[in-house]
């Protein structure tokens, strides 16, 4: 068990080193470099050289990369000249809010998708299964920047059920205290996951219903109810953990778009704003932190799964 966990952690660390290196390289290759970005197109060669010297941009590339890694390890993510603030402190303010959004959306997706998938798996290829499959296909194919404004139009502006904007509070507590504003962003973000999870749950349920032990239970006279909920469901639930871990990258990516639709003050909005303002340090910091969070989440899911299902450790 410990060996497995250590192996997975090592793997996660390698992933992060690779990702940071790729991002670093990408930024490094920008024509003109950061100095031109900050000082403007008419900056003199001398002032660019000075900027590079002050910010360590004249060092060899591997030393710069090492400085970046060293900075990340000490929660220094560089300085945003556009926000006039260290990127680290902006992220520290934004990250918890995005975690709330992603966490709630994942939770909602699981709560909705499991019963849906079980129902579909038990009634496969019946009309109700087809209708639900079609529904989840549409949910899966609906970009959040399309469904978001539609939900806002009908549920916020026409019906006044919910607020048209995400909660704008400074702290996590104040955001959680405003469920009317929080609901639409969470729903929008969770729709894709509801679709993906319920499809997964449906096939997981169908797999289990084809297993020998189900036939045995049937032969011994177990009721359909007992078969479904006593036997198949319990085994079908386990892979959900892996599935959540695997879909984290998609959910985090979706959070970027959803946040900008609802003006949710999290990492995603920060990143998208950084794009429009050509704020490279903020964009890079946001993406690296989001990636670290995603990799960590996947790691936790994997370890949890191996705790619950020892078979996985030896495969």
């Amino acid at each position: 068990m410990i060996g497995y966990v250590l192996r997975r952690i090592l793997q996660a660390v390698i992933v992060l080193i690779l990702v940071t290196f790729v991002v670093f390289l990408l930024v490094h290759l920008i024509p003109g470099g950061e100095a031109r970005e900050v000082l403007g197109p008419r900056a003199s060669a001398a002032s660019i050289a000075q900027f590079n010297r002050i910010n360590g941009l004249n060092l060899p590339i591997w030393e710069q990369y090492w400085q970046l890694l060293d900075g990340y390890l000490h929660f220094r993510f560089g300085y945003s000249f556009k926000l006039n603030e260290p990127v680290g402190s902006v992220i520290a303010n934004r990250l918890p809010k995005t975690l709330v959004l992603v966490g709630l959306a994942t939770l909602l997706a699981i709560i909705v998708a499991i019963p849906l998938g079980v129902y579909q798996g038990a009634r496969r290829n019946k009309p109700s299964d087809h209708v639900l499959s079609l529904f989840s296909l549409f949910a899966y194919s609906m970009p959040s920047f399309y469904i978001g404004p539609i939900l806002i139009l009908y549920f916020a502006i026409d019906l006044h059920w919910f607020s048209y904007e995400a909660p704008q509070g400074q702290t996590v507590g104040s955001i959680l205290a405003d469920p009317r504003a929080l609901f639409l962003p969470v729903l929008t973000l969770s729709l894709i996951s509801i679709a993906a999870f319920s499809r997964f749950m449906r096939s997981s349920m169908m797999d289990q219903l084809n297993e020998d032990y189900v036939r045995t239970a049937l032969a011994k006279g177990a009721s359909k109810r007992r078969l479904l909920y006593g036997h198949a469901l319990r085994n079908a639930l386990l892979p959900i953990i892996t599935m959540v871990g695997l879909s984290l990258p998609q959910i985090v990516g979706g959070a970027f778009i959803t946040e900008s639709v609802f003006n949710f003050p999290g990492m995603g909005l920060l990143g998208i704003d950084a794009i429009f303002q050509d704020d490279v340090p903020t964009l890079v910091g946001t993406v690296v932190v989001a990636t670290v969070a995603t990799v960590a989440g996947s790691l936790i899911a994997d370890v949890l799964y191996s705790l619950l299902d020892p078979r996985i450790r030896y495969s």
Partner: peptide, 12 residues
């Protein structure tokens, strides 16, 4: 696979 693909796309 552990990296959010959309983010990578956006940065590049």
């Amino acid at each position: 696979l552990a990296v959010p693909a959309l983010l990578l796309l956006i940065v590049i």
